[in-house]
């Protein structure tokens, strides 16, 4: 069987399994409901201006994506392999004519398709709602935001899979994933701020620290897309704009892609070792 076919068969099964997962469905529907609610609020607050309405919706969606997408990606990724171990089906999968790369990428792609589909629907419906009857709406930043949200999802799934591949049980893998989410969402920015204050870091160093956090990277990209500048982020944002200029968004995208690829490569390597997790 060709590698691509193996990846696709696995990805399809993973996507279907995700849509059978009640927690995922609840989180996806909550995301959709919140996105539609935010779009409705944005539309009702700005009459006749599609651009402003879309912009407001996008700003609100940044917070929603930053909160929900990493949780979904980390938790689903963490459960993907450790859950199979719990059910006893992982050994069956390992015994199939599938290489480590097919196993890892198949799982990754299936989860990305599931999360991506729910985001596409949420962003799409919210966009349609807010821009209906309005004129002059520019969708480019909005689509850009969706793209970065997908990259954040990919990075989160990838980290989740890495956690999953080294965890014996799904419960411990999901526990670690939630801890990682708390670190990213709650401690990430505050930690960087505390480190900057305690260590007396300059703006460039604070920026360097922030770039290690995929959530901060997403936030920077989202603000750049919607506002067209990072002055909101203070001196670190200004340094980023000044140093990278027009390469800012591609650089931020590349960092998120690296966050997706490196943990996935590590997970593949660990699967290839064919060692039982103790």
């Amino acid at each position: 069987m060709s590698e691509l076919r193996g990846i696709w068969v696995l990805a399809e099964r993973e996507r279907r399994e995700a849509f059978r997962n009640r927690w995922f469905l609840v989180s996806a529907l909550s995301f959709l409901a919140a996105a539609l609610g935010l779009a409705w609020l944005a539309k009702s607050g700005v009459s006749g201006s599609g651009f402003a309405g879309l912009g407001r919706t996008a700003v609100s969606l940044i917070h929603l994506v930053a909160l929900v997408v990493p949780l979904q990606g980390l938790a689903m990724g963490a459960g993907a392999i450790a859950g199979e171990r719990d059910r006893g089906s992982w050994n069956l999968l390992l015994a199939q004519p599938l290489g480590a790369l097919e196993l890892a990428v198949g799982k990754f792609l299936g989860l990305l398709l599931a999360i991506g589909a729910t985001m596409l629907v949420s962003f799409g419906l919210a966009g349609v709602l807010v821009s209906s009857g309005a004129s002059g709406a520019s969708f480019l930043p909005y689509f850009g935001l969706l793209g970065f949200a997908l990259l954040l999802a990919a990075a989160s799934i990838s980290v989740g899979l890495l956690v999953s591949v080294v965890s014996e049980r799904a419960s411990s893998a999901v526990g670690i994933a939630i801890l990682a989410w708390l670190l990213l969402v709650l401690v990430g920015d505050l930690g960087a701020l505390a480190a900057a204050t305690a260590l007396g870091l300059d703006a460039g160093q604070v920026l360097g620290l922030a770039l290690w956090n995929p959530l901060s990277v997403f936030n920077m990209a989202a603000i750049e897309l919607i506002r067209g500048g990072l002055e909101l982020l203070g001196p670190a944002g200004l340094v980023a704009s000044r140093e990278l200029g027009s390469a800012l968004l591609p650089a931020l995208g590349a960092i998120l892609i690296a966050w997706a690829l490196v943990p996935l490569a590590l997970a593949t390597r660990i699967i290839a070792r064919r060692e039982e997790v103790a």
Binding site: R13, E17, R20, E84, R87, G88, S89, W90, N91, L92, L93, A95
Partner: peptide
């Protein structure tokens, strides 16, 4: 291959 621990996708 039929594994000892029955790996089935229960759902």
């Amino acid at each position: 291959y039929l594994p000892e621990e029955r790996g089935l996708y229960r759902k």
